[in-house]
């Protein structure tokens, strides 16, 4: 009987179901090489636990604890009880979806007139669509009008619809955009201004709004590069 490392590891972690568990237990008794491999897998785990264990003994900093407690109080006030999670989710999504700021002017396909307002839910312009289909996360593409699209992540929303978070960086302004598959095309679900693109840390405003929106639509984790290529065949292999 050959036993691979994954099976041996599952045995060590108590995650191997019967009857396989008993088979492996019996094999380890008689096979020295197998026992040595098992020992290495157990050691790997014990070592990690031992090294990071002491960190748990450190008290949570009072400041962090206080701010989390404050956030809990703010969010779980009794008054909120009239909002079910479902209606809260919809309200948050709706409230944010219509808030779109000036630098998203690119989305209008116009000459990025200052102060122009794009409405989320609109179809994405052709150059943006092409970039959404072909630029892997972490990559970027020049669009028209001195605007660069930087692909941040690809994910599925709570309904399983494929979405991408990208940033549009113009010479004077930038915005964070969430676009989702809309039939054969892409619909812009959210566009929020971010004040500056060249700072080390982005000012939190636009990103918080994007984050709240992603929470509201139950955005899944970012796809791995492989999964992203599978979902977007326009992305060429590295």
């Amino acid at each position: 009987m050959t036993i691979d490392d994954e099976t041996l590891m599952a045995f060590a972690d108590g995650e191997l179901p019967e009857p396989r568990f008993s088979e492996v237990a019996a094999a380890v008794e008689t096979d020295e090489a197998l026992a040595a491999r098992l020992h290495a897998l157990v050691l790997g785990k014990d070592a990690a636990k031992a090294a990071y264990g002491p960190l748990l003994a450190q008290p949570v900093p009072a400041r962090l604890r206080r701010s989390v407690e404050a956030a809990i109080r703010a969010n779980e006030r009794p008054a909120r009880r009239v909002w079910s999670p479902r209606s809260f989710q919809l309200a948050a999504a709706a409230a944010i979806a219509v808030v779109v700021a000036a630098p998203a002017g690119y989305l209008l396909g116009s000459s990025s007139a200052p102060g122009s307002i794009a409405v989320a839910g609109m179809a994405a312009p052709a150059a943006l669509v092409a970039a959404l289909e072909s630029v892997p996360s972490g990559g970027e593409a020049a669009l028209t009008g001195d605007t660069t699209m930087v692909a941040i992540a690809t994910f599925a929303d709570g309904a399983g619809i494929l979405c991408r978070e990208v940033e549009l960086l113009g010479p004077a302004a930038a915005s964070v955009v969430v676009a989702c598959r809309d039939g054969d095309g892409w619909g812009v679900r959210l566009a929020v201004a971010i004040p500056s693109a060249d700072g080390f840390y982005l000012p939190a405003g636009g990103l918080d709004a994007a984050g709240a929106y992603l929470s509201a639509i139950n955005a899944g984790p970012p796809l791995s590069p492989e999964a992203e290529r599978a979902a977007l065949p326009g992305i060429s292999a590295p």
Binding site: D5, M9, R37, H39, A40, L41, L43, G44, A47, A48
Partner: peptide
């Protein structure tokens, strides 16, 4: 499994 084997290799089994 790969990660755990590598850690064990780097430490040496005796370190257990």
């Amino acid at each position: 499994a790969r990660a755990r084997k590598r850690i064990a290799d780097e430490l040496g089994v005796e370190s257990g």
